[in-house]
Design a binder for these strands. Structure first.
Lengths: 365, 365
DNA sequence: GGAATCAACATGTGCGTACAAGTTGATCTT
DNA sequence: AAGATCAACTTGTACGCACATGTTGATTCC
């Protein structure tokens, strides 16, 4: 090991900095002196400092942040360079998915990443296969809409495998209850449903039927908001007035239930629905039975989708910032990837939706 | 994916050089122009050239030898069986995209492939970047919805590069006119529009306004079907009765035109629209002006999307087997990949759509 | 007390220059 | 003809300057 005294200056500086880091005198996360001060310290030009630093950035020792400074990186695991991010959704419908994926793509593609897309069709076994595929494909990170998130995840081992491979992941829309300490970006579903029910109560409605999805956490949270809003409105909770459905019977159970309730003569004042898809089905059913919305029955949806906008009656719905949600998840993942886990207070992001009042609710006569 | 036109100069040069190499205009082993001459060619400083070159050296594209020159490296060892298929669409909207991607995914995932998804936002420059990305990511094949397919493709070299890398691709929805010998799966757009116009003529309508997109081949073909149907119905073609629009003015031009025509007193009997999005906009405009659909004006859409189903009046539209189209493209690509190109007679698939008659057209009094 | 502003400082981009040092091929010398 | 020399090219190192752009925290203003 000959220490060539005639090394170029930029190599000398590079070796010095690398040595400081390898010996632990500069620790991961720590800021190194600014380019200007390094230039002064070594009596070389800033240009030469930048050359030394750029090599160390390329070798994965440093990272620099515009306007802030240059920082020592954690080199415990070497980075892969596939520049691919896996995205696992539950569905690829025209309902929420397109805008969310647009948001994700706009951020990722701008940062040179590509999306590998998979969907589970809300089936736990498919989720397991998707995760295995992603592990094989050496993606650099994952954005996951959890499947059947109301239940404890059966794929816990696979998520742990992601951890041990150093592949970070961000949940979107919800999270598994046994993975609640992981990063996620979700809506405040309870608050959204709360505002819808409070609004209907304020219009004088007493018998407010609720339709909720029972196999994902969004459904449970929306139900919780429903319960809280009833209590705060001094309306007693009636289990017979609540319909819980699963993915498998979403096409039939809600409408059958509402039809039976109306035909048996016990008509409700209003229906709050898990989402616009259900609300739209209920709307079509009610109008098909000769009743008028909102004159006879008020209806609210959730997600503020095209279904709430394009129909014969515009549905009052709870907003869903779909694109923003996707962008937030992508940005969070990129932050984690770049080692900026100082953003621990941004790991769990909850976006509060708003009630968008349109034409499907009316004061009770 | 927004393509920043204000890229730094060194990035522009980097992208240029990378593109030349990916397209095979600079071959492995070949020497690139000297730093001095590149600086002259791009009227930038040598310093900036060096910055661009140093990035490409780091990425493994180039190697430089002191005193001799800088040379293109062989990147062939990068290729392997990734089990990834690239999918490039024009948009990621909720309109047609979700069902097409569902169809593609259902076939590909069943065969163990994953989708790498990108979209061009119907911008040729973005298409170029998407193709370059895909070349780098060693996908095994590509499904491409062409961008601005009415024009000759400006990315011919990149498509040729795909060929020379042995990466097969299938066009969907349309094809570039200078790539018409490549495999594709498309709709018979002319036949679809023909049936809509013939139907309206059969209802007694004489003045049938047509709205067509002029920058993709679907629009041109639908226009052609319109022209043929008028001729076969013995209605003379009136250029003032036809509106052509581009991606960039789709939001304003069609509706403004129709509004002006109605306000100037020259009302049309019927409007055939490029797609349901336009038809829905026209529908909202017409009703907003106090006219009734279909009593006063008949309207047809195209694509048989949710927009034709959920509105106050169900729009008569031309079917679009979105999911089947995606599946057909994926199956064709898999056939080509497995070497079954004996199916040369299946390389160009044209699916004939049908007119779906609903409630937005009526016999002329 | 909170919002807006701004100066100081960080990195990023880009130009100019100069000279060092390795390679090549033509020319000169013997 | 063989070897030395040298001019003309290449890339490598190093300096200087200017301005753009992003971040931060102190200050000011309402």
């Amino acid at each position: 090991m000959t220490k060539d005294i005639n090394q170029p200056k930029y190599l000398k500086l590079k070796e010095y900095l690398k040595g400081e880091m390898l010996m632990g005198r500069i620790k991961p996360g720590e800021q190194i002196p600014s380019e200007h001060s390094l230039a002064e310290m070594f009596t070389i030009s800033r240009h030469t400092v930048r050359k030394a630093v750029s090599i160390l950035i390329n070798e994965g020792y440093l990272t620099s942040e515009h306007g802030r400074g240059t920082y020592c990186l954690d080199r415990s695991h070497k980075r892969s360079t596939s520049r691919n991010i896996g995205v696992i959704t539950t569905y690829m419908s025209d309902y929420i998915f397109p805008k969310v994926i647009q948001g994700i793509d706009s951020v990722l593609s701008q940062n040179g990443y590509s999306i590998i897309l998979k969907n589970t069709n809300n089936d736990t076994i498919n989720e397991s296969n998707c995760l295995k595929d992603m592990l094989e494909k050496n993606v650099e990170g994952l954005i996951i809409e959890p499947t059947k998130s109301a239940l404890f995840s059966r794929n816990l081992e696979l998520f742990k495998a992601l951890d041990s491979c150093g592949i970070p992941f961000v949940f979107i829309h919800g999270y598994h209850q046994n993975l609640e300490d992981k990063p996620y970006v979700i809506l405040d579903d309870a608050a959204g449903m709360y505002s819808a029910v409070r609004y209907l109560a304020g219009l004088g409605h007493k018998k407010i039927t609720g339709i909720f999805k029972a196999d994902d956490i969004q459904g449970l949270n929306r139900h919780e908001g429903y319960v809280r809003a009833l209590a705060d409105s001094r309306i007693s909770y009636d289990p017979d007035n609540v319909i819980l459905f699963h993915t498998e019977d979403k096409e039939v159970k809600p409408v059958n239930f509402i039809r039976d309730m109306i035909m048996s003569g016990s008509r409700m004042d209003a229906v709050v629905c898990y989402n616009d898809e259900i609300a739209f089905k209920v709307f079509q059913l009610v109008e098909g039975m000769g009743l008028k919305v909102p004159e006879d029955i008020s209806i609210t949806g959730f997600d503020d989708s095209y279904l709430s906008e394009n129909g014969a009656v515009r549905l009052t719905s709870v907003s869903h910032p779909k694109e923003r949600l996707g962008m937030a998840a992508a940005e969070l993942l990129l932050d984690i990837l770049s080692g900026r886990n100082d953003a621990a207070d941004r790991w769990q992001q909850v976006i509060v939706p708003e009630l968008i009042i349109k034409d499907s609710c009316k004061k009770r006569q």
